[in-house]
Design a protein around this nucleic acid. Structure first.
Lengths: 221, 221
DNA sequence: ATCCCAAATTTTGCATTCAAAAATGTAAAA
DNA sequence: TTTTACATTTTTGAATGCAAAATTTGGGAT
């Protein structure tokens, strides 16, 4: 079993919320499940801790990272900065084919919106944001963006939306595509920031501070 | 020996260039030197690989990461974005005491410039940039900035300078301090970008693409 | 019944060990 | 002499073992 695969699988488990934020990560169980010994598992946990997805407590094991409102705000801020930068760079470097792909993804997303399919809408939404970042042609940026977005993904793409906000978000996306097609870097950067700022406000207002595992258990019960 | 300490010490060894970019990392030797076994060492190497300082080659060991011109350009771009963001946030949040500290650091740096002490000038320079980022009050940003700057530090703070460029850089820093004192976020952001773009041009023009370890050995020989 | 402290158990962190893969060295053939 | 095939050594990646730390459990005192 390859090292990267172990990291990827545990990351997936954490992002799926299978181990909820704040919950203890059961080493032994994961070892059994992934059919590996503790050595590669612990290496993976250290890597994920460096990424911010796991919290290591000396002599007390590891927990799925739990984000406070402040953490969430901070990460959204950074994400804004990264997307704004990506937008500017993308406008300088993107070619017509890539714009075509993004336009297609946009059309698909709008269709999902019309169908009222929030899950698929979010999926398309995310694909567009990732495509813009990819179009910046900067792997270092892409990597950092991936790491930051992974941490706020659940908040960003799981929050319920009001019809008004959803409609507004779609409008913003029209503007995003438009700016991209006009290669208006400054404009795109500006819209992306606003877009993400609105998303952040939604998320924080929805009280998406990640709850303790115990709280979560209580809620479910 | 604490896990973080091992990571920190190896990081220092890499940043000092004691193991030059591209060179193989001698596991056994480092184990002896740090008085640890391979298990914690390998955990640390995996973490540093996630940070981008180490390159892992399956079944072929690890090497100190070697940056191409493109890598360097990309990282400088990201660094620009992060500093620009930090500048804007800092202007919103910084208090007079913090500005005073940065002003003092600036004065000290200018003094070093007058003395012609490049090493100390760079040290002060770095302290100012880090203080601005810290003033943004965003730990997520601070962490990302640290990780990105670590990778380009050698290029950024080791490149020799012409008197003209040095003088110009000092001028830019005057403008940086000025914008900060006026809490002009947009202005500061703009200046920081330009400042870093100039630095990047210097670095890339100086041909600071990191050389193979073998090349380095040949050069020395 | 509750609280507190000590013993037992579990869990963590690291060293050691083991198997597999790669690198190296050697010898034979072209 | 050069090249190639093979055996040996080294190094890597992962499992296991062991000591220390933390958590849990049980018993006794209040």
């Amino acid at each position: 079993m390859l090292h990267e695969e172990v990291v990827g699988r545990i990351r997936a488990i954490l992002l799926d919320g299978e181990i909820p934020p704040g919950a203890r990560i059961p080493e032994r169980e994961l070892c059994d499940r992934l059919q590996i010994s503790r050595t590669p598992l612990r290496e993976a946990l250290k890597v994920l801790a460096a990424e911010g997805l796991v919290q290591l407590l000396p002599h007390r094991g590891s927990r799925a990272a739990k984000l406070t409102d402040k953490d969430m705000r901070d990460l959204f801020e950074v994400c804004q900065g990264l997307e704004a930068l990506a937008g500017e760079l993308a406008c300088e470097r993107i070619n017509d084919a890539e714009i075509g792909e993004i336009a297609a993804a946009h059309a698909d997303m709008v269709q999902r919106y019309r169908e009222g399919d929030l899950i698929q809408y979010y999926r398309g939404n995310r694909a567009i944001h990732e495509a813009i970042v990819a179009a910046a042609g900067n792997p270092a940026l892409t990597g950092l963006y991936a790491s930051v977005t992974a941490r706020i993904r659940r908040a960003r793409y799981v929050t319920p939306m009001t019809p008004q906000r959803w409609a507004f978000a779609v409008k913003e996306h029209e503007a995003i595509l438009n700016a991209l097609q006009r290669r208006d870097g400054a404009g795109l950067s500006h819209i992306l920031r606003a877009h993400l700022r609105h998303k952040r406000e939604e998320v924080l207002q929805a009280g998406f501070a990640e709850t303790e595992a115990s709280d979560l258990a209580l809620r479910i019960a």
